[in-house]
Design a protein around this nucleic acid. Sequence first.
RNA 1: GCGCCCGUAGCUCAGUGGAUAGAGCACUGGUCUCCGGAACCAGGUGCGCAGGUUCGAUUCCUGCCGGGCGCACCA
Length: 559
Amino acid sequence: MEDIRAGIIKALEQALYRAREAGEIGFEQIPAITLEVPREKQHGDFATNIAMVMAREARQAPRLLAEKLVACFEREGTWVKEIQVAGPGFINLTLDHRWLYPLLPVVQLADTGYGGSRVGAGKRVQVEFVSANPTGLLHMGNARGAALGDTLANLLKMAGFSVEKEFYINDTGNQIENFARSLEARYLQLLGREVSFPEEGYHGEDLVETMQGLIDQAGDKYLRMDPGLRRELLVKYALTEKIRAIRDTLERFGVFYDVWFSEQTLHDSGAVQETLEELQKNGYVYEHEGALWFKGTAFGEEKDEVLVRSNGVPTYYAADIAYHKNKFDRGFDWVINIWGADHHGHVSRMKNAVQALGYEPDELSVILMQLVRLFQGGEIVRMSKRTGQYITLEELMGEVGKDAARFFFVMRSADSHLDFDLDLAKSESAENPVYYVQYAHARICSILRTARDAGHQVPRVAAGDCDFSVLADPSELALMRKIADLPDEVIRAVTQLEPHRIARYALDLAALFHSFYTNCRVLTGEPSLRNARLLLVDDSRIVLRNVLNWLGLTAPERM
RNA sequence: GCGCCCGUAGCUCAGUGGAUAGAGCACUGGUCUCCGGAACCAGGUGCGCAGGUUCGAUUCCUGCCGGGCGCACCA
């Protein structure tokens, strides 16, 4: 695919040089030639706007220029069958459809590796996502982040990057203080003491359960303890419990991390302090009213930010800067964070700090994802019956299952608000896009089973030996073309940080397969046609399965 | 007030500066003697408004309108 593209571009360049030698066109340098895939099929397999781009410098009308270029174009070795000028000056290229056939054995051979590339070879990338507060349960926003982050990590791996997935545990700070007081209140209440619950505390039912669990294990022994020590021990117990619960839920959601990173360790190791000193050394820190401030205004921010409060306690910002320093010091070439849109103000602040420490801010990417709203029966679903809080990921999986949940979250662009339709996700029918894609896979497996039972194997063909010219139906060519596009799609999804493209790809591919299935009978009596189609079907299976796996969905053989 | 995201078909959303802007759902009609009907095919006066840049703008820039979210010695 890439070779073919590069070959055509080279041939176009040579045509331009030839035209110049013949005195037909004048130019200094050829601008970068891009080949796009036209929306309209009639416009061929590729199109280029090079004549329009060069029109001004060459002082010629785009169409005229295009015609001269076409006249000098040599097709030799490019698969180009037709080349013509169209519209305001486009050059449309139609390929001999035989260019697709060598792909068929390639997919078969690559198998689980098909769709991969080496654009990220030698580069280490870290994806940090979810990083939910360990004070409660995972909600819809966390779930969206989990689906996006995990899929993105899978795609990065396919693109050749070395990838690490990380969960940052916010296990210190004000919220933990608050968590401690909430736990203490629940603990005391469960043991019959009349204590009021902190106004700003964590009201979720899950804290009651957590403390009941502790009481079942350890009884009332914390009752007579010094309150400070008691809170410390309650938090320690609850954090372990909560983090385990979060990890369990994520694993059931199909998300596994390489590293669980504790914020507390940054304080304990002195990393926060070192980071502050470095910032100070670089001249970005000053003292004011007893607090230490970061000069955000030096980077065009509206105001400066507190790093260390006047009571001596570092802010979350200070810890987060230390955390990002730590990431870069671990040698990552690219650091990707997935945050809720409510943290957007933090993005430029973080990049500023990264720069202030002498790192390259462009090596930090942040994907901001917009809010998730749940819909059922056309109404917004806000509260969870069980916890009185927002619906949890656990409950969502119980309602619609892992596959539907993951697909729905990853199907939309991160920066669009996501309306999650519970009824649609639950429906086991045609209108559910998840089943549509999975059904295509199951259908393929069924065809292959039937073929095997009849004694027909998928042919194994060497790459050089593949005349599949019997595959010429438009639906067959469209399907092959889509399969050919996969590596490019992955690269695009990764470089644009848009994993939702792959969900669209899965839907498109499934549609093309269903269409092919309707138009072309696979198990025919004609052996060469049957063999060619069996290979195409098996390749479709491979591609669908790969894509479903990257999205974190199962690829069922029956359903 | 300042900042970020969004505004595309009845609904939910895709869309790489390009030619006739797409998909799913919903609705209507049709296809199938056979490999899985959870399928396929057909049916559409839609890019919030106004400027600007460009040969060309849904896409880039500015302003406005509408929706969401931020703007703590919270995280």
